[in-house]
Design a protein around this nucleic acid. Structure first.
Lengths: 145, 145
DNA sequence: CCGGATCCTAGTCGATACTG
DNA sequence: CAGTATCGACTAGGATCCGG
């Protein structure tokens, strides 16, 4: 009864519902769910942007900074280290003078691109609707009656 | 040369690369990119969880709270209002006594489920790899030489 | 039962200055 | 060039009290 339809595109509904039931059944604690940690990472201000930049080709430290104008060196360093720690990017140091460092995606990092592209596409397509809903909501707020 | 293969699944690489080139070409400012705002929303601590909960069926206020044990009323209220403002969820008030409110996904909200399910699936599948990479990285840090 | 208002803490991020 | 260190502003988020 819980079988997903194999040939057809199963509704995202079912997919997520199944997953959620698994999570919330038994004593699986949502609080400790590792997926949450990962999603939090993706949600932070810079990770996704850096991944997208590196998706094109490996970049050097300052190159990334130029591609993302409003990131500070501090955040760039920190986010890169987090991504490296999670095995999403590689860090190659060339002992040239002055030294140069090149960052690139690992296989794991590249495997993120596909779901990420889906999400970005959705965001682009939905952006007008969201903007509309938002202004409608705000208008209703400011003129209640 | 830049044509995407139409019949085959185009690599996420190309998809994102195209998108990024569009973004960074001309004077399109990444800072103002509306997609960033949307991704930030998804990344905050509670929105995704609430959307997943509501994906199963409409819920009442306290029901959501019980499904997500470690959320405070404050954050629940705030996140729900943000989602409502963005047109992702509906809010129906029943003038019963005591009053009850039911939240449910709109079409727009449901359209998010699919890309979200992709991402969650990816996160679950990649979680072991990430854990491995993380412990390897930490081990290398604590014993440098 | 639903949620608004207020207070307060803890983490996050940016700017700046400094090292190798 | 590629970071590290320190400080300070900002803000997300939890606790609590209150009203409908």
């Amino acid at each position: 009864m819980t079988g997903l339809r194999a040939n057809n595109l199963p509704s995202a509904h079912e997919c997520l519902a199944q997953r959620f039931k698994t999570w919330s059944s038994g004593e699986f604690d949502l609080t400790l769910c590792p997926v949450r940690g990962i999603l939090d990472r993706l949600g932070d201000k810079w990770t996704t942007l850096i991944v997208i930049v590196l998706a094109q080709r490996p970049h050097r430290f300052s190159e990334i900074g130029r591609a993302i104008p409003d990131i500070s060196k501090r955040m760039l360093t920190q986010t890169l280290r987090d991504l490296e720690r999670d095995g999403m990017i590689t860090r190659r140091v060339f002992p040239t003078k002055p030294p140069s460092v090149e960052y690139g995606l690992t296989e794991l990092g590249e495997s993120l691109l596909e779901p990420l592209a889906h999400l970005v596409t959705w965001a682009e397509n939905s952006q007008p609707k969201i903007a509309t809903a938002r202004s409608a909501f705000d208008a209703a707020e400011t003129s209640p009656s």
